[in-house]
């Protein structure tokens, strides 16, 4: 069953395509989200607050395109795992 860490992994992977590696690394460094070389989140106890902060930062820096680019993919997995989503992804 998917967890919030999995949802954050989906966001990171998707944003590597939308924002590119440098911009995404900048966001992750600001939020102090540790990742491995493949872009997988190394923090295992992620919660809805972590996902919310990540999305808020993406929205603040890059606007609607960055949010809509991962909203559907994240929403599908969250629904399957019965995970509540932060308001920004609803």
């Amino acid at each position: 069953m998917a967890t919030y860490k999995d949802l954050i992994d989906i966001v990171i992977m998707r944003e590597l395509g939308i924002l590119g590696k440098e911009r995404m690394q900048g966001v992750l460094e600001t939020l102090k989200i540790p990742v491995d070389g493949a872009g997988h989140c190394l923090k295992n106890d992620c919660g809805i607050g972590d996902l919310d902060r990540l999305m808020q930062e993406l929205a603040a820096r890059y606007g609607a395109v960055a949010v809509m680019g991962c909203k559907i993919a994240v929403g599908r997995v969250a629904r399957e795992a019965n995970l509540e989503l932060p308001k920004i992804l609803n």
Binding site: M13, R14, E15, L16, G17, I18, L19, G20, K21, E22, R23, Y62, V65, A66, M68, G69, C70, A73
Partner: peptide
């Protein structure tokens, strides 16, 4: 893509899916 390039790069599949 904010990381636009004329030719698709390694992450383009994700940009395309989005």
């Amino acid at each position: 893509s904010f990381d636009w390039s004329l030719y698709a790069n390694e992450y383009y599949p994700e940009a395309m899916k989005a």
